[in-house]
């Protein structure tokens, strides 16, 4: 599945590069994937093969039309029509990675309980860049389940500073 996601991501990156907006497409694709993860109803609807592909594509276009670039909308529509909507999260992460590599940077997925305040994203990127030794693009995911703090994932490395993690450590210490 990872190999298939990588293939789709390469194709998406190739299209976006051709359109000259890989940076935008990768970011929008990441946001769409996060939105899909947050809505079970939408995810099930787009994954339902009983629904005609044209109808699913129409849903995508209705949702993204005017809110995302045409390239992003077309790419998401193509993925949903191919019946790979469940792989959209992996494809988006791979696309973000490809975009970052193109610019000589790394990608950090940063999960927070609430949206970052002004300036926190830049300071976060700087701190993680200092920690990894190279420049980092951060992709923020709002995840209330972590209760508070931050969980940063850079490649295979996870830096967990969430309240949920600390409570888990406290529970284990008992």
């Amino acid at each position: 599945m990872a190999e298939r996601s990588t293939g789709y991501a390469d194709a998406v990156a190739a299209v976006a590069r051709a359109e000259g907006n890989l940076d935008v497409v990768s970011d929008e694709l990441f946001r769409v994937a996060r939105a899909l993860e947050g809505s079970d109803e939408l995810r099930m609807t787009l994954s339902d093969r009983q629904i005609p592909a044209a109808r699913r594509q129409q849903i995508v276009e209705d949702l993204l039309g005017g809110r995302a670039s045409e390239t992003t909308t077309a790419v998401v529509s193509m993925i949903v029509a191919a019946g790979r909507s469940s792989d959209l999260g992996g494809i988006a992460r791979e696309a973000v990675e490809i975009n970052a590599r193109d610019r000589g940077r790394s990608v950090a997925e940063v999960r927070t309980a609430v949206a970052l305040a002004d300036g926190q994203a830049e300071r976060m990127a700087a701190a993680l860049g200092a920690a990894t030794g190279h420049q980092v693009d951060i992709k923020v995911v709002v995840d209330p389940s972590i209760m508070g703090g931050v969980v940063a994932t850079i490649g295979d490395e996870v830096i967990d500073g969430s309240v949920r993690h600390r409570l888990s450590q406290l529970r284990d210490s008992f």
Binding site: A130, A131, G148, V150
Partner: peptide, 29 residues
């Protein structure tokens, strides 16, 4: 958790936790 839950409802507390995380990551590395 009850105490934390009430505290975490405070946006300032959430911001402080993120700031602490940034400071700790920057300090550790």
């Amino acid at each position: 958790e009850a105490v934390l839950g009430r505290s975490l409802e405070d946006p300032e507390m959430q911001r402080q936790l993120v700031d602490d995380y940034i400071a700790r990551v920057g300090a550790d590395q």
